[in-house]
Amino acid sequence: MISPRELYKRYFYISPIDLADYAERNRFRNYYMNWAALFGSFFTLLGYMILERNNLRQNLTTIIFFIICIAVNLVSILLSKVFAHASREKAYILKNIPLYIVFTWGMTSCVYNFYLQQNPFIGVITFFNAVLIMLCVFSICIHVFFVLVCGAFCGIAPGLLENFGLSGLFYFAFITGLVIVLAAFLRYRDKQYITALKKQKKSLQVKTFGNFTALYDKKVLKFSRTKSNELLAYLIYKNGSSVNTKELLAVLYGDYADSARYGASLRLLISDIKHTLSELEIQNFFITEYNNFRINPEVVQCDYYDFLAGDKTAAKAFTGEFMSQYSWAESATAFLERKACGGN
């Protein structure tokens, strides 16, 4: 008989390093959503204080609530920036911390609305809004999600019973159970997808020591535009971190490249890469989000990544040359040389 632990490992467990790309996606989306929430909370607080300027003392609890919302958003934004370049081994933990700070506050807000604001309907809406955003927008850690959702449910259960009766409590518990089942299903789907990508990884290879070369099924990837290779090479060098349009323009066309003039050229390069990878059915390798670009290191074999991970074969393969055809790679070469000599 298979134990629950073995069942979990077989169907739901994903190693943290396999989730490094998911963590970067979470960090990136959380960062911009927090900016939106920050401005929303600030202007709501400002409007509330103007409308209720004669009753501020009586509404102090509401004002404090919005101030805490702003503070939570600011902390999450700051930590998103701090952990932006976390190592692949630590990415899944560190890059998700800002997200779960906000989600914890969302669950706390449910309890706040139920008891301090005495508005159970808003409490229920807040609960499901936070949960649905987590499930639809982010890749969740099922353990943390389960603990926070169950904690919030237990916190508001007495209020549910008092305001909606036993039937209301039952329906809320039933829907919460469905939410947890959905979270487990999404985790299972992620595991299946990552397993499929690992099969793809056996065919997708990038060589960075010497000249940059990308291969699929042992054949060189051929793009229709020369600079497409350089764009891809730079994203490989960034090791999964998101790179914005401005940075790419500076790398490809010079520090003072005019976005109005060269933006169209960059879009053509991006289209070229997407088209080439699509024809070869290469998935989840080149990722674009809101004018930010990155590659997923977990779906490609790369000597540079093996070297950073301490692989001895990759260390021997490094002879002092790294993407030699690109001038911007010189600083990285110096770093690799120090690391090869035992430095940091």
Rank of each mutant, 00 (worst) to 15 (best):
F66V: 04
I77T: 00
L78H: 12
G123F: 05
P98Q: 08
F121W: 06
Y115A: 11
V111W: 10
I122C: 01
I97W: 10
V111M: 08
L99S: 05
I67N: 07
I122Q: 07
I70K: 00
I97F: 04
P98S: 13
K95G: 00
L78W: 10
P98Y: 09
C69Q: 06
F127Y: 14
V102C: 01
I64V: 13
I93N: 02
A84T: 14
S109H: 09
S76H: 00
G106M: 06
S76Q: 01
V124G: 07
V82L: 11
A71S: 11
C110G: 09
A91Q: 00
Y100L: 01
T108P: 05
F65Y: 15
Y115H: 11
S80T: 03
I70V: 06
L99H: 06
I101K: 02
I122M: 06
A71G: 07
N113G: 04
Y112P: 00
I125T: 14
V102Y: 07
F103C: 02
N113S: 09
S109P: 06
H85E: 12
Y92G: 00
I70H: 02
N119E: 09
N113P: 03
N119L: 06
K81P: 08
I93E: 03
N96E: 01
M107L: 12
I68N: 07
A86K: 03
V102G: 00
A86S: 15
Y115N: 09
H85A: 13
A84N: 11
